[in-house]
Computed example of a mutant assay.
Amino acid sequence: MTTLANTAQHPLVRVLYRSGLLAEDLDYHAVRAAMVIMFFFFGYQKWFPYEFERLVPFISNGPLIWWLYPVFGHAGASYFLGVSEWTFGSLLLAGFWDKRLGVLGALGSTGTFIATVTIIPFMPEGWDVAAGGFPAMTGNVPFLMKDVVLLAVSFYLLRQDVVRLMRQ
């Protein structure tokens, strides 16, 4: 039977501990940094014509974002999403220092990924009929599935920031 004392004596555990990988909050900070980087890069894409057309199947089939085209047009919808992504990424970045801003960024991030995850059931030809349909993904659905994880990450950051704000 392995005890905590025996585990702490294990050379690999000692190396990991000394490296800082087991430091408290490292996972929280790494997840926050990853989301900031992701929002920066995805927001950057939204300023170019190739992305205007790439977004068509997503926005057109999004039950929560379909209205972007009638209101802004193709380029304007892409710009709107780019500004939103940079705003939420900036708020998440500011959340390293101010948890109130982190909460706002995590709320925006959560809303973003609720909007994208809800596209999945409405995406035409999203399930490979030849392979039996659901859950055999095809077309744009595999790209959207990453947003399920990003939604969970957004909820994690939101919870962490609210808890940390309450402790202050």
Rank of each mutant, 00 (worst) to 15 (best):
E51A: 07
Y79W: 14
L107W: 05
Y69C: 02
G62F: 05
N6F: 00
L55R: 09
D25S: 12
M137H: 02
T112F: 15
I114W: 13
Y44V: 06
G73R: 02
R18F: 12
G133N: 05
W66Q: 12
E85F: 01
G76S: 07
Y79E: 00
T118Q: 01
A77W: 00
Y44F: 14
D27T: 14
R54E: 15
R100Y: 05
A136T: 03
F52V: 00
N6V: 04
H10K: 03
F134V: 13
H29T: 03
N61A: 11
G126S: 10
L91G: 06
A30G: 03
G139I: 07
I37A: 14
M35T: 12
L16R: 03
Y28T: 15
R14P: 02
V15F: 12
M38S: 13
V56E: 15
G139N: 11
I65P: 00
E24K: 12
P135H: 04
G111E: 08
L81S: 13
N61G: 08
F48K: 05
E125R: 12
G73E: 05
A34I: 00
G95W: 04
L64Q: 08
G43V: 01
A75D: 05
V31H: 04
I37E: 08
L104R: 07
S60T: 15
E24M: 02
G73C: 01
F113K: 12
F96C: 02
N61R: 09
A75I: 00
G62T: 06
V103Y: 11
F122Q: 07
L107V: 15
S109D: 07
R100S: 11
F39M: 15
L93E: 03
L12Y: 13
W47T: 07
M38H: 14
D98H: 14
M38G: 11
W86R: 00
H29E: 08
D27P: 01
M123P: 04
G133Y: 06
H10C: 03
T118K: 00
M137E: 09
F39Q: 06
H29L: 10
K99S: 14
A34V: 01
P57L: 07
V83F: 11
G89Q: 07
L81E: 02
I59N: 06
P121K: 04
T112P: 01
A34T: 06
D98N: 11
Y17W: 10
M137A: 14
G111N: 08
F42R: 09
Q9M: 12
H10E: 12
G133V: 05
L68A: 09
P124S: 02
M38K: 09
R100E: 07
F122A: 08
P49Q: 00
L91W: 09
F113A: 13
H29N: 06
F134M: 09
L92G: 13
Q9G: 13
A33V: 07
T116W: 11
W127Q: 01
A30C: 08
G111Q: 04
F122W: 12
L16N: 13
Y44M: 11
L12S: 12
V31F: 08
A8T: 07
G133K: 05
E53F: 07
G95A: 09
A115Y: 10
D128I: 12
F52G: 01
A106S: 15
G126Y: 07
G43M: 00
R100N: 11
P121E: 05
K99G: 02
D25T: 13
A5Q: 10
G73S: 01
L93W: 10
I114K: 03
L64G: 06
G43L: 01
P124G: 02
V13L: 13
R32E: 07
P49E: 04
W127S: 00
